[in-house]
Amino acid sequence: MQRLLFALLTVWLALTASFFLLRLIPGDALSAQLDLGGASRAEIAQARADMGLDDPPIAQYIRYMSGVVRGDFGYSLIRLFPVSDLIAQRFAPTALLALFAMSLAVIWGVGTGILATLNGFWGIMGRGMMTLSLATPLYWTGTLAIIAFSAYLPYSGVDEWQAWILPILVLAFHSMGGIARVAFANIQAVKSLSFVIVARSKGLHPRTIMRRHILRVALLPVLPIISTQFGFLLGGAVITETLFVRVGIGRLLLDSVIAQDYPVVQGIVALSAMIVAFLSLITDYCAYLADPRLRWMDNNTP
């Protein structure tokens, strides 16, 4: 219950912070749009006043929040649409892409992390793949994938299922490096801990030790990485969407930030905060299930 309250607080804090911070940046999308079309200064001033953009920020904030409480996130300044519609239209492609890519990245990342701890050829391969993922920015992986595979695989849009393959692979490859890196370091460290040595001295098969004892503990730090990366994938999907000509939240965010279409940006921050708070709850719960020692913690706070 307390956690749920804090989750709600996260959304409120993020919204409030974004609301006031955005208003510290001069300019707004509406004036710019009218100016480009050829409106006079008086006409622009009139339009701003009509939209309530000249009211004191506090008054705007109260008006905005009272709408938000009722589930109304306002209208885009230039798109003639309720913010909630704009986001809803684009949410599914981004969320599905993130979900698929993240699932693949977890398997790929943990697998690479384990591989990297081995000696010999496979170890080198694992560490090589890990480094490659960390050392290549997303826009380059994507560009190379398009150059290499666009002749064989359709990659634009979201209508055909084939067009999802490249973006998923590229995004998964990008997220895999961080997961592998943390998994690798922790497996190395856990290997020398007391309970592993006990298990080994009991004569258990190395693979059993890896699966039952090492991974359970070593992968705990990976959990928050997964949840924070997932949040990043939702908000930062802009590069994938731009390269692969896809519809999604990331592009909407970038366009709205550049144009300074405040209500849309705030709406996306609210969505992002909800997802982050939700994932944080889930992560804590998963860690709780995976590591019995945490249960002790919550009953014995210092």
């Binding site: 560009t143 398009i146 150059i147 666009s150 002749a151 359709p154 990659y155 634009s156 849009g157 731009t242 390269l243 000509v245 592009r251």
Partner: peptide, 19 residues
Amino acid sequence: FRFFADPPTRLTALESKTA
């Protein structure tokens, strides 16, 4: 009509008949 927002990959899109 689709939105090819990234300039460096526009030509690749034509070459692969994506556009």
